[in-house]
Design a protein around this nucleic acid. Structure first.
Length: 921
RNA sequence: GCCCGAAUGGCGGAAUUGGUAGACGCGCUGGACUCAAAAUCCAGUGUCCCUUAAAGACGUGCCGGUUCGAGCCCGGCUUUGGGCACCA
């Protein structure tokens, strides 16, 4: 019998489905292991080979853990709300749900062919009302909570209301938008509407005015992580800054915990570093400068990490959006300031980014007073100061900050160095080193000491206080779109009011069209009767990350309609042990999920405060594009090696008609009508294509469809080859050259069982050498799989199979454990061979073979030979060698003579496995 | 500009973390089988010197250092991938 992968793969895939082999049940008698993939957005293009690579990696680990006796939870679902389906709906009128369901069906067919061990009974879809009920529920919980900075956790808003009633804001330390203070009596006197507005300042899900990334082409706002280089990540449309009232999540309240808890996670350092930078903790000082502005007195609070440089302040700068700007603009400067503000306002985000080197600004006419020196310094307005960070105002120290330096140069302001001996004629001196000068009481101190001394000084005299700032902003949670979760909020007399929990889910209404209304309202404004008890419902919907923030919890208990997850299920599965996915979610999903989980943890709904214990980032799979070269103005194509002799245009060509960089000329002519009468200039009789590694995409004709690989080689070969390409975490191009190698390996393994129709498996006793081969493999597998070094694991397998082939060993005692070892990687062929060996049932229920040290190759130990207390060289000796043996060996070494010379060795001290000390006389 | 990471044959990549560099696979060369092709199998394959072999020398981006010993550690570069980017 030959290795008939088509029959085998079909047969075993049906077997798994029929027998529910991978159905996961809570079972407290067994240890759990939760392996999760980042669920896909089902796009219209279907899967390409890059997508399932991470899924294959996690599937291998799931199957491996199963073999090791774990109760494995390995689910899959779809992140099904999102922009592309809606854009398509706007263009075609097709309901996004229809296209989404079609895409899901296609994804499922593609996934099924690869033989994953998913428990499909637990599938979730974020666009399913039974699922988004819990997204809405969580939102309501956030709406009904505030963050207590002292307890460092979220609490129900009722507790805050009780505190207001008892003593107003007195003695509170809670996360909020703006600092406010009022007494209990004042609180009691507020109207309902006023109370609602006050509470918004504290809720974890709140409505507030904010500068947002507005994308006119998409007709919606976007979160910071949805914008890159001033363009929307999806679609690449321009984005501008706009002030709008939006729902937001107070992620910033969790900044410190999100940062601290990174240390406890088993994630890669680079990913943790990305999150740390995104959170951007910076410890500094807030200092108050009084101002002189006609007869008005106004304080400017600034934030700085370098109070020690305060003696070098020669001017101050406000963000254009700062509310102090109108107050501090003197009448004679009014016109110029207004002009500048208009100029800043009409800039798009993209222009701002492109022009970061251009220095702009305007003088306000006012002066600030340096609280340490009493000196008067001008207050400027410039866009290089951001309204959203710190206090939106800075003290400028041009001698020691490059941005201030550039500004001072441009506007001719004084640059006053305060570190001895530094040269600031060509640029600022930003380093934190040297001795202070021109700085009053700080003179002569080391900069490092001065930083602390200055902080203390300012704090002790009440001129300012220590303050920690974060770059992390609150997440903007409204989208002016149709295809997302509706907010369970209605407006009762203008007061945002939650829809009662027992009325959830609040389902998405039908609309006749999916674009915004003529009045510029979101599409939900088109719905008939979009009201609750006669009051208007919120018309925006939630963003893409809403549904993906807690999906891992829902998998634990997907059919529960009483709770997001039951206590029992949560306490059994707890959190994700292994999460595999791309690094592109580092500052989006992976932050939001952690925040969302911590919030639920604070309120006692889940028992772990971090969602993903270990995280692996699989690298991106790039495409290998092929090119042909058309001579300009002709329909003649020249082979890559000769192209430099002509003036040519590079054209992407479908990689399916290129074989080993050689173009199939007939297929090329048939490919597109305009190439039907193409002429070619060949080299050595063939047309050689050029190539490049690029992103895998339709437009570059370099997409490899996993279905095609399954057709030609089978899913097992696809799985093995994908893992054999190189280290999991590394980005690499998909190059189908070389796939024959792993396919050959599978056939070779098969031939250990069969010679044509003859079954070769026998019950002979294995020789010690054969056992050694087997156990070397077991040892390698165990160590390498745990380290996700799948490529070397597969190499080890190939070595073992080559070795057994050479020995003509088809002994059951060797082959049986090997089938089990292979099953995580190539499950279909493993099932078939398990069956051939006479077993009933699935190899997935077998146990990982035990590793016996006796059969392993004799390991060597390294001994460092030291003489006169200094290590001179090392020797490698078998681990089994005893002390006397090591001693004799060392005495006989020629190197020993070199160092000991004519002296006599009186003693050799052997520390097992490590050091040999030689004592001489 | 700032913060991470990487650099090894013709190619993808190994190397027990300081101990025989190049495992495994691809490709290539030669051979066996075959009427032939495919498939399969066997042998060779870092570079240089050489008819060949032995032997030797060189060899992990570059320069220097530590060490008996460096792909791995230290200092200084170069190239490259990724993240952040007026965050005070």
């Amino acid at each position: 019998m030959d290795y008939d992968f088509r029959g085998i793969e079909q047969r075993w895939q049906s077997y798994w489905a029929e027998h529910q082999t991978f159905k996961a049940k809570e079972d407290t008698s067994r240890p759990k292991f939760y392996v999760l993939d980042m669920f896909p957005y089902p796009s219209g293009a279907g899967l390409h080979v890059g997508h399932p690579l991470g899924y294959i990696a996690s599937d291998i680990f799931s199957r491996y853990k199963r073999l090791r006796g774990y109760n494995v939870l390995h689910p899959m679902g779809y992140d099904a709300f999102g922009l592309p389906a809606e854009q398509y709906a706007i263009q075609t009128g097709q309901h996004p749900e229809v296209t989404t369901l079609q895409n899901i069906a296609r994804y499922r067919r593609q996934l099924d062919r690869i033989g994953f061990s998913y428990d499909w009974d637990r599938e979730v879809r974020t666009c399913d009302p039974a699922y988004y009920k819990w997204t809405q529920w969580a939102f309501l919980k956030m709406f009904g909570s505030y963050y207590d900075n002292r307890l460092r956790r979220a609490r129900p808003i009722e507790e805050l209301i009780a505190a207001f009633e008892a003593s107003g804001t007195d003695g509170l330390d809670v996360a909020c938008g703006e600092e406010r203070s009022f007494t209990a009596a004042e609180w009691a006197a507020f109207s309902d509407l006023e109370k609602s507005q006050v509470l918004m300042n504290y809720r974890i899900a709140y409505q507030g005015d904010t500068a947002v990334n507005w994308c006119p082409a998409l007709g919606t706002v976007l979160a910071n992580d949805e914008v890159k280089d001033g363009l929307s990540v999806r679609g690449g449309y321009p984005v501008e800054q706009k002030k709008m009232t939006q729902w937001q999540l107070r992620v910033s309240a969790y900044a410190e915990r999100l940062l601290e808890d990174l240390d406890r996670l088993d994630w890669t350092d680079s990913l943790k570093e990305m999150q740390r930078n995104w959170i951007g903790r910076s410890a500094g000082t807030e200092v108050v400068f009084k101002t002189l502005c006609g007869d008005k007195q106004k304080d400017i609070t600034i934030f700085t990490t370098r109070v020690d440089t305060i003696f070098g302040v020669t001017f101050m700068v406000l963000a254009p959006e700062s509310e102090l700007v109108p107050e501090l603009t003197t009448p004679d400067r009014k016109e110029e300031v207004a002009q500048y503000l208009a100029y800043v306002k009409k800039k798009t985000e993209r222009e701002r980014i492109a022009q970061t080197k251009t220095v702009t600004g305007v003088f306000s006419g006012s002066y600030g007073i340096n609280p340490l020196t009493g000196e008067k310094v001008p207050v400027w307005i410039s866009e290089y100061v951001l309204a959203g960070y710190g206090t939106g105002a800075i003290m400028a120290v041009p001698a020691h900050d490059s941005r201030d330096w550039a500004f001072a140069k441009k506007f001719g302001l004084e640059i006053r160095p305060i570190i001895a001996g530094c040269d600031v004629s060509e640029g600022s001196f930003d380093a934190k080193e040297g001795k202070m000068c021109n700085s009053g009481f700080l003179d002569g101190m080391d900069v490092k000491d001065a930083i602390e001394a200055a902080k203390d000084y300012v704090e002790e005299r009440g001129l300012g206080r220590r303050k920690v700032n974060y770059r992390l902003r609150d997440a903007i949670f409204s989208r002016q779109r149709y295809w997302g979760e509706p907010f369970p909020i209605y407006y009762k007399d203008g007061i945002p009011t939650p829809v009662p929990e027992d009325k959830l889910p609040l389902t998405l209404p039908q609309v006749d069209e999916f674009r915004p209304t003529e009045a510029g309202e979101p599409p939900l404004a088109r719905a008939k009767d979009w009201t609750y008890e006669g009051y208007p419902l919120e018309k925006s919907t939630m963003p893409g990350f809403a549904g993906s923030s807690a999906y891992y919890l829902r998998y634990m208990d997907p059919h529960n309609d009483k709770a997001l997850v039951s206590r029992e299920a949560d306490e059994y599965w707890r959190n994700v042990d292994l999460y595999i996915g791309g690094t592109e979610h580092a500052t989006g999903h992976l932050i939001y999920s952690r925040f969302w989980n911590k919030f639920l943890y604070d309120l006692g709904y889940v028992c772990e405060d971090e969602p993903f214990r270990k995280l692996i980032n699989q690298g991106m799979i790039q495409g290998r594009s092929s090119f042909v070269y058309r001579i300009v103005g002709t329909n003649t194509f020249v082979s890559a090696g000769l192209k430099d002799q002509y003036e040519t245009t590079e054209i992407h060509v479908d990689i399916n008609i290129v074989h080993g960089d050689r173009l199939d000329l007939e297929a090329f002519r048939a490919w597109r009508p305009e190439f039907a009468d193409a002429e070619f200039i060949l080299e050595d009789g063939v047309y050689v294509c050029g190539w490049a590694v690029e992103k895998m995409s339709k437009s570059m004709f370099n997409v490899v469809n996993p279905d095609d690989i399954c057709d030609t080689y089978g899913a097992d070969t696809l799985r093995l080859y994908g893992m054999f390409l190189g280290p999991l975490e590394q980005s690499k191009p998909w190059d189908t050259k070389g796939i024959d190698g792993v396919n050959r390996f599978l056939r070779k393994f098969w031939r250990l069982f069969y010679d044509g129709e003859t079954l070769l498996v026998n019950d002979e006793e294995p020789t010690p050498e054969e056992l050694k081969t087997l156990h070397r493999l077991i040892g390698k597998e165990q160590a390498d799989i745990e380290a996700f070094s799948y490529n070397t694991t597969i190499s080890a397998f190939m070595i073992a199979v080559n070795d057994l082939t050479e020995r003509k060993c088809s002994k059951r005692a060797i082959l049986e454990p090997m089938v089990i070892l292979l099953s995580p990687f190539a499950p279909h062929i493993a099932e078939e061979l398990w069956h051939v060996l006479g077993h009933e049932g699935s190899v997935s229920d077998a146990a990982f073979p035990e590793y016996v040290e006796a059969y392993t190759v004799e390991d060597s130990a390294t001994y460092a030979v030291s003489f006169n207390g200094k290590t001179r060289f090392t020797v490698q000796l078998p681990k089994s060698m005893d002390r006397a043996g090591v001693e004799a060996h060392v005495r006989a070494l020629p190197q020993t003579g070199k160092y000991v010379g004519s002296q006599t060795i009186v003693k050799v001290i052997v520390v097992p496995g490590k050091i040999v000390n030689i004592v001489v006389k």
